[in-house]
Amino acid sequence: MHLSPDEIIFWQSGFVKLNATIVYTWGLMAVLAVGSKLVTRKLSTGLQRTRWQNLLEIVVTGIDKQIAEVGMSQPQKYLGFLGTLFLFVAMASLFTIVPGYEPPTGSLSTTAALAICVFVAVPLFGIEDQGLGGYLGDYLKPTVIMLPFNIISELSRTLALAVRLFGNMMSGTMILAILLTITPFIFPIAMSALGLLTGMVQAYIFSILATVYIAAATRVRKPKPVPAPEPAAKQ
């Protein structure tokens, strides 16, 4: 009984090791990349398109719309990062229907890595958008006294992101494992279905939170230029 796929180690050489988390992540990456490549290899720009292309278009435009709903003025700029977050987490939980698969998001290492990515990405996007001074100035708002609290909130929310996702994913697999030992018939299937649902919800929550953080970092001074592009966008 192991809490995390990190504990399943296929190969180790000192610090470097190859555990189940990394292997399954690679698997997911391969599936995602090859799948996209296969589908987008023969993209049609006409009105007729394949079902796979249609699916991917729905996914991409759905994420795009979601980001725009949060309030980002340029959703496509953040689509690569936030979309990948969502797709990775969602696919990780979706593949739990494959027997013998351990979701990499069930490892605190993976969720921590994702949270760190968000933690790094937020100031990067903020600085890119507002400049270094502008971004750092946000920590002093509304007063200088708020600086430590702002820093603490930044760290704590990153931690919360990582732990929330880990907890949910790990709990899903843990519950499934425990239930399998108690009632091996039917009930684990229901729990597995529930796990799929929670996995999707977690993927949504994770990516939405990341979006909100980035939006908060970038749009502070945005309200002024925002009205201008709106009529332009309408045209």
Binding site: S36, L43, Q53, V60, D64, Q76, L79, G80, G83
Partner: peptide, 8 residues
């Protein structure tokens, strides 16, 4: 994924 799809 994103670029080809968006381009399309």
């Amino acid at each position: 994924l994103y670029r080809p799809i968006l381009d399309a």
